[in-house]
Design a binder for these strands. Structure first.
Lengths: 217, 217
DNA sequence: TAGATTGTTAATCGATTAACAATC
DNA sequence: TAGATTGTTAATCGATTAACAATC
């Protein structure tokens, strides 16, 4: 049973293919060649074909790719054909924003429970879900089939909470706390470090400025 | 005036170095070797030295790196030694969450104006800033020294709004809309596609499942 | 001075692009 | 069949790691 490891770079690109194919499908486009998709997405046709062939031959020589079929296949590769039950830890501004974001639910990511350490908001209802104290996480996870925890708490508590979640049997953590979690390697962590993203933008702007100065000199 | 292009991979790592050095500095650590930092950050010492030497020799043989000095230098490379004025377009849940996030301001990213197309929330005050109609963006940008726009609106309007922002003289866009913007190359765009991040997590969980199944077989 | 650790060159590894035979 | 376009191998390019001379 050989495990050809798919590179991180390829995986990162899959959701973008999925997005473009979804849009094409919505527009009623039935087939597309790697060359056409290449122009649209501003990547090389070669890369598209290489990426897809990591998972199988989804195209047909002389024809190209069937949009709907490829869309569904990539969705299935990404695991979007299955439902995911989520709990949200941290019902602050960001947590509430994510809880209210309807598109996640459309893709099968269902928020089942919301937890917060601040007792003032316990009982508050967000999108039909009552905010519960942190102490309830363990029993809630035991009773519901939760696979992903969304961590939108300050970095101070994040590492400890993550360790607890692991002990309760969580499988994946979507981490918005500005800290690296310390969990066993079999637990999947996807970090969204917003401040780091903003710093990258800042760096690029600085480059712009420099380029501007250079041009003037 | 040679322009040694710094690779995207290196730039992506800078904010993480910055974060670790900031924490070390807060803990009162004065010096650190690439080897020690390597252990802490779980990257190779070689990579750390290579990355830093893209920007200059910040260390000293036999000693290592001065934490505070290196922290400040990386901050300066990232452009964090200068203030950035931001406007926020889209005062929905996510926009409000970002507006209320204090840490950005600490790093010099100041939200000066908030705009939304929904007239029901015009006049609403978020963190001391009154939500204005979209029509005000142009004059607001002319009067204030805005360099970054934070785009937290649905994808439907995002491409058009981005084009307008460009015509008003924006330099950078922090894009949270689930669509690729179409702007001139001198405009810097940093995308935060949350749904793509969640899909990557979903993919990894699927891999876990497969690995589990494989082990059983 | 001896030991430590950088800065930097060289070697390796991996990812992207190019090319083309296979085939629809 | 001829034309188009994939799947895949080979070539190139870039990024990471290893090694070590320079030097604090």
């Amino acid at each position: 049973m050989e495990t050809k490891e798919i590179s991180r770079a390829v995986i990162s690109r899959l959701p973008r293919y999925y997005r473009y194919l979804g849009e094409l499908n919505d527009e009623g486009v039935e087939r597309i060649s790697s060359q056409e998709l290449s122009t649209l997405m501003k990547v090389t046709a070669s890369q598209i074909r290489q990426d897809l062939n990591n998972f199988g031959g989804f195209g047909q020589q002389g024809y190209g790719y069937n949009v709907k079929y490829l869309y569904d296949e990539i969705g299935s590769i990404l695991g979007l054909d299955k439902k995911h039950n989520l709990i949200l830890i941290g019902a602050g501004n960001l947590g509430q924003a994510l809880a209210n974001y309807v598109n996640f639910e459309k893709r099968g990511f269902i928020i089942k429970g919301i937890f917060d350490s601040n007792e003032k908001i316990h009982g508050k209802v967000i999108r039909g879900i009552r905010v519960q104290p942190m102490e309830e996480i363990e029993s809630f996870m035991a009773e519901n089939d939760i696979d992903i925890a969304v961590l939108t708490i300050p970095k101070t508590g994040a590492v400890k909470v993550a360790e607890q979640l692991v002990s309760f049997g969580i499988r994946g953590i979507w981490n918005f706390a500005h800290i690296d979690l310390n969990v066993p390697e079999e637990i999947e962590v996807e970090n969204v470090h917003l401040s780091e993203s903003l710093m990258r933008l800042s760096y690029k702007l600085k480059g712009e400025q420099n380029a501007h100065i250079r041009r003037k000199v």
